[in-house]
Amino acid sequence: MILIAERINGMFLDVKQAIADKNKKVIQDLAKNQTEAGASYLDVNVGTAAADQEGTIQWLVETIQETCSTPLCLDSQKPDVIAAGLKVINAENGVLLNSTPLNKKSDEEVFDKYVEMANQAGPKANIIALTMDKNGVPQDTDTRVAIAAEIVSKAMEKGFDTQRLFIDTIVLPVKVPNAQSQPGNILAAMDQIKYLSDPPPHMTIGLSNLSQGASERSLINRVFLAMAISRGLDSAIADVFDQALMNVVATSDLLMDKQIYSDSFLKVYSSANKG
């Protein structure tokens, strides 16, 4: 399971404060602790913490890289912010560009820009692409799959290896009125997306969004994660400090025959997947 740790995000108050104070220690501790908890990538999102998004993402990247070599996931809807992050990143460790829709009303070519940026950053630069286009986030299964198919074929046309592509099927909060059919639609879409190419593109979700505003958040997150892994999900942006969630990841890997069973399988999961 490719886990992208979500905590370095300006939406969280401690990160927002650290950005305002230029307090490196808070950021570096989060990087270290999330890595030790089993993160494959560290998400880096300025959020609403600063007006100067480009300068701030550079400060975050440089601060993390001073003490931590875990690959980073540059998280912004603005290509210029991603580009600013890429200028200071050590892409040799790997990097995820998070994220681009298929296209936007304001920018038909946005996906192509991300591919170009990834190619410039080197062979270990991957892209998260959302099943979303200029009409917004689709509600049904078929449109999600159709957008994913267009993304995959566009990547192939450009010679961009589909194994460098993460399709994010966009999880909406289950508590939102009339959104309760969405998790089922997403699972049905995953069933088809995994057949779009061989080898298939990775599939990821922003897991915590599912339980936004709900009670029993951790329970909702981990049950859905197990369901999605069984349909082919192999990555998630998630809270790696949630031990119950991490145990579900370890157990799912076991049940999907991705890890050899041992009596200590929970204990070794994160250490066995580091590096």
């Binding site: 050899i260 069973y261 041992s262």
Partner: peptide, 14 residues
Amino acid sequence: DINIAKQINILASD
């Protein structure tokens, strides 16, 4: 037994 093989490595490593 592959499962025990993994477990004994974990035990030694512990």
